[in-house]
Simulated scan of single mutants.
Amino acid sequence: MHDHTSPEPVALPLGGGISRADDHAFLQRLIRTLDSSHPAPDRLAASFLARFGSAGMALSAHVGALDEVAGRETVLPPLLAVVTEAALRLYRARVRRTDILAGQAGLEAYLQACMGHEVIEQFRVLFLDEDFHLLADELMGTGTVNHSPVYPREIMRRALKLGARRLVLAHNHPAGQPEPSSADIEMTLRIAQIGKLMQVTVHDHIIVGNGRTHSFRAAGLLI
């Protein structure tokens, strides 16, 4: 017989970072909530942290990767996928309400959640208005583990249709670090040059990889 009593709420710190102990407590509570009959939520929470590094990265992982840790006999992976989708929608709503310049950390966290565990390369574009508010977040290309096709003129055509004046480009490096390749830099500068002709500014290009992000603007590659 299993105890179906709701677990006590986990108090997370509102200021500053979230510790590994907080992440463990949160994951343990989430596992108990989604699967009250799970025999060892404490051990599974620890396994998620060992594999993914944090609760956030665990929740953004693919169902297949979650299956490898949780085991296929549990219902947890697909339920966690629903939780992840809910979190992404909350992130997206927050990004829409926030000036991108004032919310860089949140923007990078959102992109990490969207693409951090993708096994193929994706290229996204965030289309912004003059005041840096999000008009649309669209996937503009998918490819292989180390390449996704990018068509600058299609990006600009979409920007003009949306009335966007600024862009944030984003893609992931599934197989490595987030530092840009020479091809990444060349492609970004090409898009920026075409944008200038159309009065559309490439504000930043953010690469997601290996749990970290790389901002072209912060690195001085875009001015």
Rank of each mutant, 00 (worst) to 15 (best):
A70I: 00
G71L: 13
T74Q: 12
T74Y: 11
T74S: 15
T74L: 13
V75H: 10
P78W: 09
P78C: 10
L79T: 10
L79F: 15
V82Y: 01
V82Q: 07
T84G: 01
A87I: 14
L88M: 11
R89S: 10
L90V: 15
L90N: 09
L90G: 11
R92H: 10
R92M: 07
R94C: 11
T98M: 05
I100W: 06
A105T: 13
G106M: 09
E108R: 12
Q112Y: 03
A113M: 13
A113K: 03
A113D: 13
C114T: 13
M115S: 00
H117R: 13
E118L: 11
E118S: 06
V119C: 09
E121I: 05
E121N: 02
V125W: 04
V125C: 03
L126K: 04
L126N: 05
F127G: 08
F127V: 02
L128D: 01
L128V: 10
D131T: 14
D131F: 07
F132P: 02
F132K: 05
H133N: 00
L134F: 03
A136Q: 06
D137W: 01
D137C: 01
E138A: 02
L139A: 12
N146V: 10
N146L: 12
N146D: 15
H147G: 03
H147F: 13
S148P: 07
P149M: 03
V150C: 01
P152F: 05
R153P: 06
R153L: 00
R153Q: 00
R158G: 02
L160E: 08
L160K: 12
L162P: 00
A164T: 10
A164G: 12
A164R: 09
L169W: 01
